[in-house]
Design a binder for these strands. Structure first.
Lengths: 102, 102
DNA sequence: TTATAATATCAAATAATATTGATATGACGA
DNA sequence: TCGTCATATCAATATTATTTGATATTATAA
C-alpha cells in the first residue's frame, strides 16, 4: 500500500479530526450513541453531538478522513457509520520509520 | 517528554519541510555541502541550494522545524547547522501508537 | 408517491499558513 | 572599527484550509 506521509500528516494535524479519530478508536465495536437507533459504530450525528459541531462541518472533516484512508465508511440505510482504519495509521508509522530509519 | 501529536503532524505536513527532514536524515554525520566550508552537518545555505529556495523561506521553515523539536540547531560561528532529532519522531510515533492502541 | 431524516455539496466568508522582498541583526575577519 | 556574509524578522501578498448557511441528494417509511 502506498502512503503519502505528508498527506496523512495534514489530515492528522487538525485537532478536531484527531479527536474524531480518537472517538472512533474508543468506540470500536460499541453501540452507536445515535439516539434513534442502536446500531454498531459511530455515525455523523454521534460526532455532531459529541463535539457540538454542525452537520456540514462534520461532513467536511469526515470526507477528509475517509479520502485519506484513515477512516472507512459503512453506509447502512440512510446512515453512514465510520470506522477507524488502523491499517492506515500503521502504514503511516511504517513509512515514517523507514524514511527516518528508526 | 510531552508530544503534541497534531502539532508535529502539522509540521510534517508541508512537503518542503518533509524533504528537508529527509535531507537531514541522509546527511547524518556527513560533510556539509556548503561550498565555503567543510564542517559537519547541514546548514541553511545547503538547503537553499538543494531545493532552490530563497533564504527567508528556508529560515521560516527551519524555525518551524526547530520549534517543534524535530530539528536541533548547532550554531557554529556565523553558520547554523541543523540536525534531525530522531527522538521527536520516535516520540511522535509512540504517541500515535498509544493513542490508537497499535 | 410524498414527507422526512441523514448526509453531501456549494459558494461565500473567514482564518491560518506560506511566500516574497526588504531590512535588521549578529558573527566574523581584515 | 568597518565591511561582509549568514541568518532572522517584518510587512505585504498569495495560497490553502476551515467554517458557515443554503440547497441538493439519497434512503426510507408512511
Amino acid at each position: 500500500m502506498i502512503i503519502d506521509a505528508t498527506n496523512i500528516s495534514k489530515v492528522l494535524s487538525d485537532p478536531i479530526r484527531y479527536k474524531i479519530l480518537l472517538m472512533l478508536m474508543n468506540h470500536q465495536g460499541m453501540e452507536s450513541l445515535c439516539l434513534s437507533f442502536g446500531s454498531e459504530g459511530v455515525c455523523n450525528c454521534d460526532i455532531m453531538q459529541e463535539f457540538g459541531l454542525i452537520q456540514s462541518r462534520v461532513s467536511y472533516h469526515m470526507k477528509e478522513l475517509t479520502s485519506s484512508g484513515l477512516v472507512r465508511e459503512e453506509p447502512k440505510g440512510k446512515w453512514k457509520y465510520y470506522v477507524l482504519n488502523k491499517e492506515t495509521v500503521r502504514n503511516y508509522i511504517k513509512q515514517l520509520g523507514s524514511d527516518f530509519k528508526l
